[in-house]
Every structure is written in C-alpha cells, then in structure tokens.
Simulated scan of single mutants.
Amino acid sequence: MEFTDYHVRLAAYVLIVDEVDGQESVLLTWWNGEGHSDPEWSLPGGGVDFEESIRDGAVREVFEETGHHVELGDLLVDHYFTGRGRSFDGWFRSQRFVFDATITGGELGTTEVDGSTDFARWVPLAELEGQPRADIVDVALTARREREARR
C-alpha cells in the first residue's frame, strides 16, 4: 500500500518509572474509552498536533493528562500498528513514539477538560498484571526491560 492510500496518526508518550511509597511504580493515565472502547490504563501521551514536533507533542500531552511538566530523555521505542478507521473509510497507520522522561514540576492531576483521560495515578508495577491496559504500556515496559538487559 502506498503512503497516499492510508491515513497516519502520530502519537507520543512517556514512560516514567519511579519509587513511590516503597514500590517501583509507573505513571499511568486512565483512558475513558471515548464511548467506543472499554476504559483502560495507558501511558501519558497521545496524538501529536499538525504543527508541533513529536517531542513537543509528548510534553504537551503529559501535562494535559497528568499535570506534570517533564523533560524528555531518550527515545525508548517507536512502534506502529495498522487498522481500519472508525470515523473514515479506509486504513490507517498509528506511529507511536515512547520517550523516557523526568518530572520537573507540576502537580499530579489531569488538566484537560472533557478529554479522553479521566485521571492519572502511580500504579505499582507489581499490581499492573491483570489490569486493563493499552498495549502501548506493555510495548514500553518490554522495551525498558530489554534496554536494562543490554546494560
């Protein structure tokens, strides 16, 4: 399929893992499903606006969804999936970029109004198994484990 034959969605996310209350935890957002899917945990992040860079989109999305200002680190993983559009006829490719990040300020709490994120929370990694979550969470955590194994 040629690039002119499908839509593209660029998305940028961050993976932040830290020690919280004595447990290794990941900062996640509760995606509300937007009326077409079951709610689930996701990484802070989302769609990149037309006139912003991937990195700027990640920083903006993290603030909107978590209330935190972040400094991005390295690109952890880029990942894509394809599917059929819900709001248009035809195929799409969702290209997703996940960055390491460090919180530099702000306060935990979603700042977007009537958006797709209901709240953000630190979730202990030990409690994540069995929780409903978007595949991007597992993509990012797997990339993190693989990176640590190479070190």
Rank of each mutant, 00 (worst) to 15 (best):
I103M: 11
D5W: 08
L128A: 06
F99S: 01
W30E: 04
G90R: 02
R96C: 14
Q23D: 12
A149H: 10
V123I: 14
G106W: 04
V17S: 05
T102K: 15
T142S: 10
E146A: 10
P132T: 12
V59N: 01
L75I: 02
V14Y: 02
E52Q: 07
R147K: 13
L108Q: 07
H68C: 05
E34W: 11
L15V: 12
L10R: 14
S87R: 12
A58C: 05
L28G: 05
D49P: 02
R93K: 11
I16S: 06
F88C: 03
E127S: 15
E40C: 15
A101M: 10
G47D: 05
D78S: 12
W30P: 01
P132Q: 09
A140G: 06
D49R: 14
E148H: 12
L128E: 09
D89C: 03
S42M: 14
G73I: 01
S94V: 04
D118E: 15
E24M: 14
W91Q: 12
G22V: 10
G47K: 12
P124F: 11
G109K: 03
V26L: 09
T4S: 14
R121I: 11
R9T: 13
I103R: 09
R60L: 00
A120G: 11
R96A: 11
N32G: 05
A140E: 08
V8E: 09
R147T: 07
G109Y: 08
L125D: 06
T102W: 07
H7F: 13
R84T: 14
D89K: 08
G109P: 07
A134E: 12
F50E: 13
E51A: 05
G109S: 10
R60V: 00
E52K: 00
V20W: 08
R133K: 15
D74M: 03
F92H: 06
D21K: 10
L141I: 03
Y6A: 08
E71S: 10
P124N: 08
V20E: 13
E112T: 01
E71V: 00
L76W: 01
G85N: 11
F3M: 09
D56Y: 03
G22F: 15
E112K: 00
T104F: 03
R133E: 06
W30H: 13
G46C: 01
Y80N: 04
G45D: 01
S42T: 15
E24Y: 07
L27S: 03
R86T: 11
W41E: 04
R147W: 09
D78H: 13
G73D: 03
L141P: 02
I16R: 05
L108C: 09
L72T: 00
F88R: 15
Q23T: 07
H68P: 02
E2P: 06
E2Q: 08
E24G: 04
E19Y: 08
D135A: 11
I16P: 05
Q23I: 02
E71P: 00
R86A: 14
H68L: 14
R145V: 14
G85I: 04
